[in-house]
Amino acid sequence: MEMTQNAALIVVDVQEGFEEQEYWGPRNNTGADRNIADLIDAWQESGRPVVFVRHDSPKPDSPLRPGYPGNAFKGYVEERRGKGGGPELLLTKTVNSAFYGTPDLGAWLDEAGIRQIVVAGIQTNMCVETTARMGGNLGYEVFLALDATYTFDAVGPWGWELGADELARATAVTLHSGGFAKVVASADLVAAAGK
């Protein structure tokens, strides 16, 4: 796997509010936070750009709403912000895709000549998947670090239920088979960043 020197890591919604299990329900991939931290470290050590995305939910009961403690980045993310040798962007959004945030992610990437992005964070099948899909549609080479994401069990129409692992697999299959992104392991990205 080849990573360009300006490949951007997009860290999506790694916020304290996702720790509120009574709101979200059961999650998968308990190792995701360690893998996200490893990716941030590798990107910062190599001087590559990192984008920190925060979801400012407009829903009054959301653990991610502005002014509520859950809106803050998780501690391990907050302590890494501003520590890298490369460019860094703080982006806020109120919808699923980081490409519809403030400031404009696409404009920031394009201005820097960035054509390769790595997406990690929370939730696998929601904001992470939507950001990766849009990135692919916009012509970026997208890598999804699947083991650096997690999600929660969900209920859909007609009472259909899917577990978090099933949802994560569905995201991986959809992004891969649809050509939106290359679904990879975080360790491979960390190794590629160190080359």
Rank of each mutant, 00 (worst) to 15 (best):
A170F: 10
G135C: 01
A154L: 05
T131V: 02
E161I: 04
R169M: 11
A170W: 10
V142A: 03
A168P: 14
G159R: 12
F152V: 07
T130Y: 02
D165R: 14
A154E: 08
Y140N: 06
F143M: 12
A132Y: 00
T151H: 05
G139C: 04
N137E: 04
G135N: 03
T151N: 11
G136T: 03
L138K: 12
T171M: 15
L146A: 14
G156K: 02
D153E: 07
T149A: 10
L144Q: 02
L138S: 07
T149Y: 08
L144S: 02
P157K: 10
E161F: 06
A168I: 10
N137Q: 10
T131D: 04
Y150M: 10
T171F: 13
L167T: 07
D147I: 05
G139K: 08
W160S: 09
A154V: 00
A164S: 15
T171W: 08
E161V: 10
R133K: 04
A168Y: 11
V155E: 11
L138D: 02
F152D: 09
E141K: 09
L167K: 05
A168W: 10
Y150L: 15
A168G: 14
L138F: 09
G156N: 09
T151Q: 07
W160V: 11
Y140V: 03
L167P: 03
